[in-house]
């Protein structure tokens, strides 16, 4: 026990390579494989494309990491993505300013986050059922608002933002990197970050230290939902339309990305960068399979297999490092 375990160290420079989780190994393998299979894979346009797709996934996977670190889960993230997009679109159509529309989406998202958080943190109900229930609520509201149809025809300002660049970098990638930086600071350089890890690891210790642990626990769900709600704005910019069911399944990919990256569902064990690795692995897999013309639905099956492979690699590694 006294020897540090090999996996899931913080990303220190020296330890980095010895600590690559299963997702990292699979990512490198896939990059090599897809490049050999079709050199078009490493073309600049395609790599930018991978970056764009990964950015959107990251915006769900990063807050999901915080939630999973508290030994929780948010199955409603995908549905919220759809709902929040619909709210922004409808508000814009109703003549609201972009800012007001986003503020509205933000308010509703945080309210749902608070609902999840209260039920999970204060009533100690299991996260997966609570968020499954709120997922139904959100999906339902989005469907009722749109009658199930996509909403389009609102101001192109959002699409313009999505397509804009900061220097040579596409805006979604910039936003994802900024979000990563912000959450990294939050998790590793603020009190709240310590408390997030403590909730999953030893909530009693946090209480003993005089911290209102339930409030922190609640805050994690509120923050997570707020980020997801704002990410929806980028998502509707991609196609210049909001679709009520667009986010369905995104929660699965986000959870898969987090778990792939080596974050565990227990004891607050994990790291934020794992979500980046995981999101990249999933996006590369999807993109590579696309280039090989594998049907998108089969790609989901492949994600599942990837996940199990990564878990097996991590397990074997742990086994041999003991």
């Amino acid at each position: 026990m006294t020897a540090p375990t090999q996996s899931q160290q913080r990303p220190g420079a020296g330890q980095f390579f010895s600590a690559i989780p299963g997702a990292g190994i699979l990512l490198i393998l896939m990059l090599a494989l897809f490049t050999i299979a079709n050199p078009r894979f490493v073309s600049q346009t395609n790599l930018v494309n991978v970056g764009l797709q990964a950015s959107l996934l990251l915006m769900i996977a990063l807050p999901m990491t915080l939630i999973i670190l508290t030994e929780g889960l948010d199955l409603s993230a995908g549905a919220l993505l759809g709902l929040s997009g619909v709210i922004v679109a409808e508000a814009l159509l109703a003549g609201w300013s972009v800012f007001a529309a986003c503020a509205m989406a933000f308010a509703i998202s945080t309210a749902f986050g608070a609902l999840n958080g209260v039920l999970i943190a204060y009533l100690t109900l299991p996260a997966f059922v609570v968020t499954l229930g709120t997922m139904g609520l959100m999906q339902g509201i989005a469907l009722v608002m749109t009658n199930g149809d996509p909403v389009g025809g609102f101001t192109p300002a959002i699409e313009t933002f999505y397509r804009s660049q900061l220097w040579i970098f596409p805006m979604p990638i910039v936003v994802a990197v900024a979000l990563y930086a912000a959450l990294w600071l939050l998790l590793y350089r603020t009190r709240l970050g310590n408390y997030v890890i403590a909730i999953g690891g030893n909530k009693d210790a946090l209480r003993l230290a005089g911290i209102r642990a339930n409030l922190v626990h609640l805050a994690v769900y509120v923050l997570g939902s707020a980020i997801v709600g704002l990410s929806a704005v980028l998502l509707i910019g991609r196609t210049n339309s909001a679709h009520p069911t667009v986010g369905i399944g995104m929660e699965f990919e986000a959870i898969a990305a987090v778990v792939l990256g080596g974050t565990s569902f227990e004891k607050g064990q994990g790291w934020l960068f794992g979500a980046v690795l995981g999101a990249l692995a999933i996006t590369v897999l999807r993109n590579g399979l696309n280039i090989l013309s594998v049907d998108s639905s089969l790609q989901v099956v492949c994600i599942g297999i990837l996940l199990i492979l990564a878990l097996l690699i991590d397990r074997a590694r742990k086994h041999y490092s003991r």
Binding site: R191, I197, G201, N202, A205, K267, G268
Partner: peptide, 29 residues
Amino acid sequence: FSLVPYLDIAQNIYLGREAAFARFGLIDS
């Protein structure tokens, strides 16, 4: 023990009392 498994030793020692090291809201690690 009242330690948090995936916080480091320094973070555990000062759990709940990080304010003493905070500068502009960030902890001076």
